[in-house]
Design a protein around this nucleic acid. Structure first.
Ligand code: MN
Ligand code: MN
Ligand code: MN
Ligand code: MN
Lengths: 224, 224
DNA sequence: ACGGTGTTGTTGACTACTCAAAGTTAAAAG
DNA sequence: CTTTTAACTTTGAGTAGTCAACAACACCGT
C-alpha cells in the first residue's frame, strides 16, 4: 500500500505534468509544490523510482510512469468524489471541502468510494467543475475556455473554477459566480487587466488573475 | 494533534479499563492488545505520559488521565458515528464497517462528524448496539444483561453484540439475531454450554462463547 | 575558456514508531 | 530464605520522512 506521502507526491507530479506531456519535472519544482526542501524531494523521487512510479534522470528531473499515472488518477478520483459527496450529501460549503478531501482521499476504501459514487448518481464533475476520472482512469475532456477569452456581449455558462482557496471560493459564491451560472461578458479592459461580467442583474468586475481561474463552456459552433 | 498511533493506544486503554475503574493496566496487556512488542508499549506509554494522557507507574502499569479519557471518548464517538453512517447512509453491511471506521476515525473532522450526526438524526447507538458518546463525552448506560441470563420461556429483545468479527456478525445477520430482534429463550443446557432461542419461528442453538457476546434489554420490573 | 549563478545531490541529524535481544526486578515456589 | 519464573525495561538498530548545510554540477554571459 502506498503511504499518504507517496500518494501526495504522485498526485502533485500528475498536476505538474498536466499540459506538458512527456516533459521532465525538475526536483526544485516538485520540492516547492510539496513544500519540502530540495534534498527531500530528491530522496523521495528515488524511492518512487524504486517502486516503479516514476522515471528519474539524475540532474534532469522525473516523470510519472504508467503505474504512477494510474495511481495519481485513482487519488484524483477519490478526492473529487469525496468533495462532491461532502457538498451534496453533507451540505458543506464548496470552499471548505478541498482541505477535508485532502485527508480523506488516503483513507477511503474502494468499497466505500463505490457506494458514494452510487449515492451521488455517478457524477462526472466535482463541486468546482473539475472532472472526476472513471474507475478505469479516463478523464472526460469537455471543451472549455477561459472567461477572459469570451467576447464582449456574449453570454456563457461557468463550467469550472481552478483555484481551491477558501477566500476566493467564498467570494465567488457570494457573487453567484459558480459552475452552472449563466453570465454575460460586458467589457474587457485590457490596460487595466480587468473584465466586467453581468450575473443575475449584477455587474461584477474582476482582475485578470481572478478571471483566468474561471473557465466557461465552449459552444460547439465556436470550436476550431 | 494526536497521531493515529496515539489515538489507537488511548482508545485501547479506554476499553481495557472498562469495568475496572482506577486499576492499572499492565504493559504486557497493553502490548498484546496493540499487537506490539512489550518494549514498544513501554516506550509509547512514556510519551503518552509526557503528553499528559496517562499516568505511568514504573513496573506497575498505567491508567488514563482525565485528558486521556476525554480523548478516548472522542475517538469512540467518531468510530461509532462513522459505523452508523456507513450502514445507514451508504448501505454497507454491519460486518464490514468496523474495519473501515478504524481508519476513518483518525481523519474525519469535527465539522464533518457533526454533519453526519445531524444527517443520522443524532443516533445514540451504532449498528452493533454500542452506545455513541455525546460530544461532551457522556455515555448512556442502558441496562442490559447477557442473553445467557435470560430465563427459559422468557421473551426479550437483542440490544447489543459485543464482537466485531465479520464472520460472527454475518452469521448472526443470517439468523436474524440483530439488535432490535425479538427472541424467546427456549432452553438452557448448562452441561453442554449451549442455549436454544426462538427467533422468527426458527430455533437456533448457540454455544456459550457466542451467547455471552449477545446482550438483551433488561426490563425495569426485573431490575434489582 | 572562465567564472559566476542557480539548481541538484549528499551528508549528518532529528522525530516517530517499531522490533529483537539482553538486562532488571518482583513475586511465586520451593 | 533462596531459586525460579514471568513480567517489565533498556539498549541498539531499522524504516519513513524530513531539514540544514555544504558540495557538485550545468549553464550562461563575457
Ligand atoms: Mn480539491
Ligand atoms: Mn475540486
Ligand atoms: Mn467498531
Ligand atoms: Mn460498533
Amino acid at each position: 500500500m502506498a503511504s499518504s506521502t507517496v500518494e501526495n507526491y504522485v498526485k502533485t507530479l500528475y498536476f505538474i505534468e498536466q499540459g506538458r506531456p512527456g516533459a521532465l519535472v525538475a526536483m526544485g519544482e516538485l520540492a516547492s509544490s510539496m513544500q519540502v526542501a530540495p534534498g527531500t524531494a530528491t530522496a523521495m523521487v528515488k524511492t518512487l523510482s524504486d517502486s516503479g512510479l516514476v522515471e528519474y534522470e539524475r540532474r534532469g528531473g522525473c516523470r510519472l510512469t504508467q503505474n504512477g499515472r494510474t495511481l495519481a488518477l485513482a487519488i484524483v478520483r477519490r478526492h473529487r468524489l469525496i468533495e462532491q459527496f461532502l457538498v451534496k450529501t453533507l451540505g458543506l460549503d464548496w470552499s471548505e471541502v478541498h482541505e477535508e478531501a485532502e485527508q480523506l482521499e488516503h483513507v477511503i476504501s474502494d468499497k466505500v468510494l463505490d457506494r458514494i459514487d452510487q449515492l451521488l448518481g455517478y457524477p462526472d464533475v466535482d463541486p468546482h467543475g473539475d472532472p472526476i476520472p472513471t474507475a478505469e482512469g479516463r478523464v472526460s475532456a469537455v471543451p472549455m475556455e477561459s472567461l477572459q477569452d469570451v467576447a464582449p456581449g456574449q453570454e456563457t455558462v461557468i463550467a469550472r473554477v481552478t483555484d481551491q482557496k477558501p477566500a476566493f471560493l467564498q467570494y465567488l459564491d457570494a457573487q453567484g459566480l459558480v459552475p452552472g451560472a449563466r453570465i454575460t461578458m460586458q467589457r474587457i479592459d485590457t490596460p487595466a487587466d480587468s473584465v466586467t461580467v453581468l450575473v443575475a442583474e449584477n455587474s461584477i468586475t474582476l482582475g485578470g488573475s481572478a478571471v483566468r481561474k474561471i473557465l466557461v463552456e465552449r459552444r460547439a459552433d465556436k470550436m476550431p
